[in-house]
Nucleic acid binder design. Structure first.
Lengths: 340, 340
DNA sequence: TGTTAGCACTCTTGGTCAATGAGTGCTAAC
DNA sequence: GTTAGCACTCATTGACCAAGAGTGCTAACA
């Protein structure tokens, strides 16, 4: 594509992102110094429409970008930005601060809130799936003579617990050794995939049936709710400030999709790595008027989860991308400091 | 108030709840067999307006109930309802079902979701504040030579845990006895208020400073986030189906208030016991066009939390009250079965 | 050949106006 | 005390019109 076309397309999209109004040739000529007349711009706009980058709500209105237009804009046209030093510092500080208490969930939750506030869009996250983490230690803590607390810790800092009560036989001293022996077997195992041999060995160790079954269930069952990914959502109401959602039914469709954890997770799982999903590219139909910017956070090279921002397709992409990337990086860094 | 006035007021409110349109004398005369003519009804309506139970959006429109009108309706006029046996069974079954895994949080969360689905309004809950619960047992589980998992269980089934790592000295066998000795001291203590004597005694028992401080913090500090009440919210988007929120800005104001945990908790804390808060009675300004129906759930006579429903002031009060009461009762019953 | 000015045309938006109809309050008769 | 009748009010609706933004096309220009 010729440079002039690119410049015009960029100008149109920049303007539309700012104003949310169909933009006409006159506006472009006046507001952006492209050195050509409105008539020339009109000709180019007709071309760009034919190429599928722009569309016209109706004859004799200005043009608005199509999904294809946004895609090209994001991939090639968009001016690159970075955070101001002050913003960057603020953001990292906010996130590092949370690490005082080592709760992964809280950290991610706060990060999402921060992202929502800074972008004024909706912010989401998919928290680490415990299924993908590696078992660190297993402990059996006696509560009373017939109840035991089963605690399972996995990297990086997940704690799963479960109370097993109504034991048929009273717990005795052997309980204390269970922890040591079972941990020796399970340490380093990825959650979902403990080999049958090891499961068999555990059966040998733990005599109490209820205890044994509870533990086996914790380290195998993938269907159980507690083990699947957790979704976070903050600032969804921010979307209602956007003119594209001034119609309640549109707003409702989007908010409903977001409120449903399964759909949110499906959405966040649709892509690998850092991506921008624009409009109809989204697998969720109700999200076809939205765009999604995501980035993953990791510890030691292992992907743990995803954070992202959801706004109208007319979103300020460069700012959103910058913020999402920074938050993901800050979360990664904060998690890497967790000792356990 | 004379019976005829009551009947007319009831008819007007019933009709308005159903249609969301200002109701006129003709409609009442036609739809409800009150044995009087529209003209008579008009006179009564004028009276009711003067008394403050009704109001007119503008001259020569029908009447709509005022907050005072709803209040009287709820307190004295409203037809009493109960769930159909099938509904009741379904509801209780759904909630009892959750008790397989003894997580209080999950139980409440599911109950709120159920309530939202059954009422088509927004449903909320304030989960048990751990501050009000009674300590059951404390355990110290070794993770590795320099890290310990501190577990604190309180009634009814709360598990708090915290990892203490980077210990200066390696943990030794004495750790095992800590649990027994500290539990003996703390059992039965209400969370927030452990006397100084006991705290002193704990200082004597636990030599490792980091461990000691972590425990003391867990059983005292009230400011820490994890210890305060937790708010649940489901189905807030349901409100957008209500004609009173066809205006996005109104919907936004309400949803924003609901999304903010602090305001939600303030709202749920404003009253004792089972209540109906109508319109402007609500302390939260943005909720003046909504009503809130709440009920508390308890275990052994101790109030643990609140569940509720939020809808427009034009809500189907009797149905909402019935459902909220049933859910609260079912949650209480389910919780009472938790052994620990 | 590419660019630009000019112009007729299209289509939305916003405003006015009148007709409609639901509903009231008042008066007088029952 | 109740009701029928009637004049009056006021939001809602649809038609209609003017204004304005923007386009596409044509012809002139560099």
């Amino acid at each position: 594509m010729e440079d002039r076309k690119k410049n015009i397309l960029r100008a149109i999209i920049d303007d539309y992102i700012e104003t949310a109004e169909p933009v006409g040739s006159r506006t472009i000529a006046r507001r952006y110094q492209l050195g050509v007349s409105p008539a020339t711009i009109r000709n180019e706009m007709a071309d760009l429409e034919e190429l599928g980058y722009l569309q016209q709500p109706y004859t004799s209105a200005g043009r608005i970008p199509s999904d294809k237009g946004y895609r090209y804009y994001v991939d090639a046209l968009m001016p690159q930005t970075s955070l101001s030093p002050r913003e960057r510092e603020l953001l990292w500080e906010q996130i590092q601060l949370q690490m005082s208490q080592a709760a992964v969930e809280t950290l991610v939750h706060r990060a999402v809130r921060l992202l929502a506030d800074m972008t004024s869009y909706a912010a989401v996250a998919m928290a680490p799936s415990i299924m993908d983490s590696v078992i660190k230690t297993v402990q059996f803590a006696p509560i009373d003579s017939r109840s035991v607390l089963l605690v399972l810790i996995s990297e990086p800092g997940f704690v799963q617990h479960r109370i097993v009560d109504d034991l048929r036989s009273a717990v005795d001293e052997s309980l204390l050794s269970y922890g040591r022996r079972v941990t020796a077997l399970l340490r380093g195992m990825p959650f979902g995939s403990v080999p049958a041999v090891i499961r068999e060995a555990i059966r040998e160790i733990i005599r109490e049936e209820e205890l044994r079954e509870a533990l086996l269930e914790m380290i195998t069952a993938g269907e159980k709710h507690d083990y699947t990914e957790k979704a976070y959502l903050e600032g969804s109401v921010n979307l209602m400030d956007q003119p594209e959602f001034k119609d309640v039914s549109k707003a409702k469709a989007v908010l409903t999709a977001l409120e449903e954890p399964s759909r949110l997770l499906e959405m966040l799982s649709q892509n690998e790595g850092d991506t921008v999903v624009i409009g109809a590219e989204n697998i969720i139909d109700d999200m076809h008027e939205c765009s999604l910017v995501t980035a993953t956070y990791h510890v030691k090279g292992r992907v743990l989860g995803t954070v992202g921002v959801i706004g109208p397709t007319r979103m300020v992409y460069n700012r959103a991308i910058t913020l999402v990337d920074n938050v993901a990086a800050a979360v990664s860094e904060a998690l890497s400091k967790v000792k356990i």
